[in-house]
Structure formats: C-alpha cells, structure tokens
Design a protein around this nucleic acid. Structure first.
Length: 419
RNA sequence: GGGGGAAUGUCCCGAGCGGCAAAGGGGGCGGACUGUAAAUCCGCUGGCUAAGCCUUCGCAGGUUCGAGUCCUGCUUCCCCCA
C-alpha cells in the first residue's frame, strides 16, 4: 500500500515511523481514525512474569493511538493463555497452571501505564482480561453460536496450522482452538466496548483476520486489522536475546543497566529504525541522528539507549545507567552501581578462587566455562587479564571503592563487595 | 487391527563398522581488528575437589571385557494398508 496517503494523524504517524506491516482496509481505518473513533486492542498472553522487547512495538502503537486521539485497550490473555497460541511455535507450549498465569498477569500489567493513560474519559485506556468471558463459555453453546462460523478447511490452511502439519509436528486440539478464542475475543470486545481494530505482530495476521470474519458473521460493525513487522536486527538475527536470556521490560527481570546496554549495542544500520519505533522523539531530530556517520553514530546509540530506557524504567534510572556506562567504558573507571554481589568478609580473608568468584557473580555458568574463558583471555579482575586459574581473590584486591571488579569480555562487569 | 520407519550432546538441525564425551552445521560465547557496530579471522561451546573421576544418545531390562550402536519389553511420533 505504498501509494496510500493517510489523512489521519494516527496512520500518518504509524506509517512514517515504520510500525505498519499490513492493514485490512487502509481507507476505512483512516476515516475512523480521522474522526478519533478508533478503539483498538492488542492481546498479551501471560506466559511469563514480564513482557519482553518483542511486545514493545505493539505497546508503542497503543500509545500513539492514544496520543492521536483514539482509545486503546490492553487485553490480558488470562483465558487464552490457558490454551496456548501455536503461532510461530515448533512445539506445544507447556500448559501453565492457573496460579502461574495469575502471577504472570500481575507482573505484566505494570508496563502499560508507563506509556498509556488509563481512566474513564473518552481516550483513556482500558485493561481487560479475556478470562472474564472465555471461562464463562459453555461448550455446546459455543459450538452452536461460534463454532458454526468456522470452516475447518480454512483453519487447516492457516499458516500456524499448516506449518505444523507440513513439518509433521504435533498440533493438539486445544491449540487448534486458539484462533477461535482469539477471534471470539475480538467480537466480544466489539460488543462490550465498541472495539473496532486489533493490532499485533505480523504473525498474528491470520488470527486477527479470522476475528474480523467472525465479527461480520455475528453482526458487529466493520472490524479492522493492523499488524506491525516482527522485530529483527539489520543482520537478520532475531532480536531480544542476550547472553542471559530474553530482554525483559520489567526491572526486576533485567536491570536498568543491562536494559540500557541492550539498546546501546544496537547495530549501526538499525539506529534510525529503532529511534522511530522505540522513542517518541520528533522525526526531524531522528533523521539528523541517523545521518551521523562512522564512530559518531555512537552518540545516536546513547540517545536511543537513554530514551528507550527512560520510557520503561524512568528518566532518572536511565540517566544513571548512561552515567554508569560512561565511567565504565569511556573513563575506564569503575562505576559504583554496576551489578554487584556480596561475599562474606571471612571468606575473602581466607581467599576466594577466581573461577568460583566468576561463577558466583553469574558471569559464567560453571567452573569449566571459567577455565576455558581463562584460556582465551576473556576474564579480568580489576581490569587485569586472569592467566592463572589458581589465582585467589582476597580483601587486598578490593580497590579504593571497596569492591573487586570482575569482567567477562569487554562489556559485562560485576562488582564483588565484602560483607 | 496389520506392516514399515523415527527418537542423539536439556538451544536447534544432524552424522554415528560394538571401544564414544560422541563427526558436521546453525546459534551462542570469548579473543584479534574496530567505534561497546557490522564484516572478517582464530578459539571455545557436558560436570567435578580435573594428567583422574562422574553423568549423557526416548524409558526399563538383557547380551558383551566393553553398548548411542546388538536383543527384549514399554512410551511417543510419522508413513502405508485395513
């Protein structure tokens, strides 16, 4: 749809910033948005205690929706998580206990009010849980009212299903039903709240369109679909993984320092795209930063890191992370608020083996890995490369700051504090 | 119900004459070069109290000095026939 020129601020912004992958009806949606009548939802499954950067694009979309005068709905998948979405999955998801789902839900909810305003006015956001209606469904009624609108022939041809079948992988009946529930969510939200747009990642296209179809058959007003691209780096790698795992949005799952570092390590080619997607900075300013060449683009990366971190962790924490990074990487010093662990003073007096220390700090997984890293020169104590696997750390190694700095590679540092 | 095939290093794919901590990829991590980038090159990618010991090839037994490899039973999946 490159020849389409939107009139609404909502679509103009989303298209200019690179959020749009596919839309079911650009003109129709644009007309709604121009009148401020879009009520859009994005669904989030409660599969972990925190969402990760992969969900951030859609959260930003909800935010822009509100900023441009429309109403966002954040849908918690308290019900659908009990079933499990097969999209993009090779294997059956583990079935989570109800208790886990509740815990995850409460962990996830917190991120939304950082970029979206909730309340009771026309453009204030709503948060709802699809467990509210899904758990009320009765099987026979559901088959009669909803199931009759679904064609198994069509369901079999959907990407999420076909992929499993073609690769001869298990697809359980419960998962096969996921799209029905998601489609039903859309119509239920349309009925309850006048919701008329569902947004999501491009892998959700099939499920969303199925919902539009169901809505039409069940008599809702016209519904719309809008998907965003899936997040990958310029070199094609899936984004959102670090050495320690996923890039979580919650600070208790991934520290502010590490979150800032994640953005700081963005590839050159991604800087402009990420600034548009993950910050609210004006496009003109972004264009200027993006144009920086060579080593100068590092300035843009720092701004990206601080702005993106400020959105999720607060301005103050983001500035602090930036400062920690500056003293650590640019001044070559030791910042006091690097991640740290405590070791009993008595233990340090007796002498703590380097290998053990690196394992305790969580920098390496095992003694064996620590040994191997010593071989390739990847471990440092107070910036001195470790060459002897028998080296002992004692209180005497603590610098003036009162801690011992352990480094793994060039970027990962942990302080050992006597306690 | 009958017949045939499959399951390998807890990231993934995948080889494996009875001597195997188990080929080769991908991914990941470290080093060099750089700009906390990319590309390229090199190394590593079961655990431990470490020239030794322990635990790994769907599960449980068996044969053998010795089993991922052979035999029996079981589980799960796929294909063909009914």
């Amino acid at each position: 749809m490159s020849d389409f020129t939107p009139r609404s601020e909502f679509l103009q912004t989303l298209m200019a910033r690179g959020y749009v992958h596919q839309c079911s009806d650009y003109e129709g949606l644009d007309a709604l948005a121009a009148r401020g009548e879009v009520i859009a939802y994005v669904g989030y499954d409660c599969t972990a205690r925190s969402l990760h950067v992969g969900s951030l694009i859609s959260i930003m979309m909800l935010s822009w929706l509100q900023k441009t005068g429309n109403k966002p709905i954040a849908l918690m998948g308290g019900g659908t998580t009990r079933v499990g979405d097969p999209s993009g999955r090779d294997e059956t998801r583990r079935i989570l206990s109800l208790e886990d789902i509740e815990n995850n839900k409460s962990g996830i909810q917190g991120v939304f009010d950082k970029v979206i305003q909730f309340g009771a006015s026309r453009t204030d956001a709503l948060m709802v849980d699809n467990a509210e209606w899904l758990t009320q469904l009765n099987y026979i009624e559901m088959l009669r009212d909803i199931g009759r609108h679904f064609s198994v022939n069509r369901m079999m041809s959907m990407d999420s299903v076909r992929m499993r079948l073609e690769r001869e992988q298990e697809l359980s009946f419960i998962e096969f039903n996921y799209m029905i529930l998601q489609a039903y969510d859309f119509t239920e939200l349309a009925r309850r709240y006048g919701c008329n747009l569902q947004m999501g990642g491009s892998d959700q296209w099939g499920n969303i369109v199925t919902g539009i179809d169901l809505g039409r058959r069940m008599g809702t007003p016209q519904l719309y679909a809008l998907t965003c691209p899936l997040l990958t780096t310029a070199s094609g790698a899936k984004m959102g993984k670090t050495a320690s795992g996923a890039v979580w949005l919650n600070a208790d799952m991934l520290s502010t320092y590490e979150y800032w570092q994640f953005w700081r390590n963005t590839e050159d080619a991604d800087v402009g795209r990420f600034l548009r997607l993950f910050t609210f900075m004006p496009l003109g300013e972004i264009a200027r930063l993006e144009a920086l060449a060579g080593a100068e683009i590092n300035e843009a990366k720092k701004i990206l890191a601080t702005e993106a971190t400020a959105l999720m962790h607060g301005r103050e924490a983001a500035e602090a992370a930036a400062e920690t990074a500056r003293t650590t990487f640019e001044a070559g010093g030791t910042a006091a608020d690097l991640p740290s662990i405590e070791v009993a003073e008595a233990e340090l007096k007796a002498g703590l083996g380097v290998l053990n220390a690196f394992v305790r700090a969580g920098l390496v997984a095992s003694n064996g890995e620590a040994r191997r890293q010593v071989q390739s020169g990847g471990l440092r104590v107070n910036d001195a490369v470790v060459t002897d696997i028998g080296q002992m750390l004692t209180l005497a190694d603590a610098t003036q700051a009162g801690a011992i700095k352990l480094s793994f590679g060039k970027k990962k540092h942990v302080l050992v504090r006597p306690a």
